[in-house]
Amino acid sequence: MTAEGKPVPDILPDTREYWEAASRGELLVQTCCSCGSKQYFPRLLCHRCLSEDLGWTKSSGMGTVYSYTVIHQAAHQTFAPDVPYVYAIIELDEGVRMISNVVNTDVSKVHIGMKVKVFFHRLSDTISIPRFEPVQQADTE
């Protein structure tokens, strides 16, 4: 996918650590220090027990395609050069689901249950976006 002109995440107080980690090549999952619940995306408080005492779990970056769609017509002009592209729900091995793209593969090969791993698409000095690509044989051996 190209980066040209695409929406870029704003770094907000609740999400600063997440994006700073992404820029270093790490995927963080926010984890409640009171009840242990994990949540995606990072928030002010725990979605389960409302505790504000929150920490982070470093994700292995491995996950599975839970569902996906191949988008043939971009809603936003900055994605038009990318069609057809895959927009997907990824279930991380840590248990949470997140929206992302599956790239670096033929879109027709993407399927539910496909094993994927994160990589970081660098947009600027401070922003890298987690996207996913198929796990190659070598990754699992």
């Binding site: 996918m1 995440p9 999400t15 769609t69 929206i99 539910i112």
Partner: peptide, 25 residues
Amino acid sequence: PFEHDFDTIYGPMIDNSAYALIKQR
């Protein structure tokens, strides 16, 4: 904000892609 930062950046087709995910599953 959170929709923009954790969804829009991945190029959804708004409602079409949301329901496509449901239908695919």
